[in-house]
Structures are given as C-alpha cells and as structure tokens.
C-alpha cells in the first residue's frame, strides 16, 4: 500500500488504562484515527506495566491507518528507581529527598538516548541530571 505519514503524535498515558477521553481523543481524533482501536491495542501492549506512565509515539498515515511504538519509561521513573525512592518530592520546595550517582545518570541517559533527541550522551546526561534536580534528587560523583 502507498502510505504517506500525516502526523506523528507523542503521548504519555497510563499503562493498560488509556481511554478515548482526552488526551487520546483530541490528539488522534483530529487525524481521523480509530480511537477505540488504538486504546485497545495500547492497553493490551502495556498491561504488564500497569501503574506506570508509558510514553507512546503514534505515526498516522494519510489513509488514517496508524502504527505506534511504546517508549522507555519517563526519566523520573528511572531516577526514582536508581535513588531507591517510591516517589519524587512532589512539592515545589527545595528540599533534597535522595541522591543518584553520575554513573547511574549515565546508565539512565544511555537507556533514554533514543527518546531524548539529544545529540550526544553528554547532552542526554545533562537532561537526566536536570530532571533529577527538578525532582529534589541530588547528583553525586561516583
């Protein structure tokens, strides 16, 4: 079949629990995608990761067909795991609630490289360190 890409839509959705409600409806509805089918397929594919947010990238073609790939978990999830925390500070304060090492940052950056649009591992590490700081997690040498 002759296929032309109409749009690429990036969403972050609750694994196994997406619904046709926003953000899925407005994001995909405007491109004429079968929303019900996307929701069903996304939930089937992410069922094992329930409780997590799983990013997804949907390619919509001009004939309104679509394909999607699920991406690595958000950096924050990986950082919390590395820091041994259940959740981030959840506040906009300045307290430090945990720490991760530079080598853990590098590991996370390597895992996230394909999704971060970073030109180099150093640039990806910078974003991961920024994310850690934004969550109240300190980056230490090691």
């Amino acid at each position: 079949m002759a296929k032309e890409v109409k749009a690429i839509v990036k969403l972050q959705l609750p694994a196994g629990q997406a619904t046709p409600a926003p953000p899925v409806g407005p994001a995909l509805g405007q491109h004429g995608v079968n929303i019900g089918q996307f929701v069903k397929e996304y939930n089937d594919r992410t069922r094992a990761e329930q409780g997590m947010i799983v990013p997804v990238e949907i390619t919509v073609y001009t004939d309104r067909s679509f394909r999607f790939i699920t991406k690595t978990p958000p950096a924050s999830v990986l950082i919390k795991k590395a820091a041994g925390l259940a959740k981030g500070s959840g506040t906009t304060g300045t307290e430090i609630i945990g720490k991760v090492t530079k080598s853990q940052v590098r590991q996370i950056a390597e895992k996230k490289m394909p999704d971060l649009n970073s030109g180099s591992i150093e640039a990806a590490m910078k974003v991961v360190m920024g994310t850690a700081r934004s969550m109240g997690i300190e980056v230490v040498d090691g």
Partner: peptide, 19 residues
C-alpha cells in the same frame, strides 16, 4: 525540556498528556 516538564506536570487530576 518537554519530557522533564511532562514529568512535573503529570499528577492528579491529569492522567495523560500530549508532547
């Protein structure tokens, strides 16, 4: 900084977002 911001934004009552 979209991903970083998404992680900060995504909390109840929000359940998902578009980047």
């Amino acid at each position: 900084l979209e991903e970083l911001a998404a992680e900060a934004l995504l909390a109840a009552p929000l359940t998902g977002l578009e980047l």
